[in-house]
Simulated scan of single mutants.
Amino acid sequence: MSATLTAGQVLPGFTTRITRADLVRYAGASGDFNPIHWSDSAAAALGLPTVIAHGMFTMGLALRVVTEVTGDPGAVVSYYVRFTKPVPVPEDGTEVRFAGVVTEVTEGIAKISVEAAVADQSVLGAAVVEVRLG
């Protein structure tokens, strides 16, 4: 990995639009065909306003904040996420903003706090990535 990371460093974030087509592709790749990810009626039956993105899909997108800086997905040592809010995906899609900040660098391991938000509402809690430096 060629990136140098220091405590307090803000990583370049990004915003992406998640569409229902993305959910269909993710369902096919992951095998998670739960209808709350593609059926408005199934989502409504559970009290959801619309279909929601797969949590693991959102988690994977958030990890890009780190891997795009490090250039090496294999440098990720650990990744912890608590899902706090679902990501609603109406028919026209939804924008999700991802960001990260290095919170600690110790003995060649950087800890990075990662954030994902929809309309300024956090959808991940306590998301922390540990990445091996060097």
Rank of each mutant, 00 (worst) to 15 (best):
D72L: 09
T103C: 02
V69T: 14
F83W: 10
V105N: 01
R82H: 12
R25F: 09
P90I: 06
G47M: 09
P90L: 08
F98S: 07
L61N: 05
W38G: 11
V114P: 00
T84V: 15
V114S: 00
A62R: 01
E130A: 13
R17D: 08
A44M: 04
L124A: 03
V128W: 00
T94P: 03
V66A: 09
T58C: 05
L124I: 10
T103L: 13
A29H: 02
V123A: 04
V129T: 13
L133H: 06
E107F: 02
E115I: 04
P49K: 10
P35L: 12
A21G: 13
L5H: 01
T50R: 02
K111M: 10
G28Y: 00
L11H: 04
G108M: 02
L11E: 01
Q9C: 06
A127Y: 00
V81L: 07
A117M: 08
A42Q: 02
R97V: 15
R25A: 15
T16V: 15
G60T: 06
G74E: 15
E91T: 14
V105D: 06
D22H: 15
T50F: 00
G55L: 07
L61T: 05
F14W: 10
V24S: 13
T67M: 10
T16R: 13
L23K: 02
E104Y: 05
V65I: 05
T15C: 09
T6Q: 15
S2C: 04
G125Q: 03
Q9K: 13
V77P: 01
A44C: 10
R20L: 11
T84D: 07
P49D: 14
L5E: 03
R20M: 07
K111P: 03
D72W: 08
A44F: 01
R132K: 15
A42Y: 05
G108D: 07
A126Q: 14
A3G: 05
S39G: 11
A117H: 03
A44W: 02
F98D: 09
V77M: 10
R20G: 10
S39C: 11
D22L: 12
A42D: 10
E107Q: 13
V66N: 00
L61Y: 02
A119P: 00
D32T: 04
A75E: 02
P35C: 11
V114D: 00
V105K: 01
G108S: 04
E68P: 04
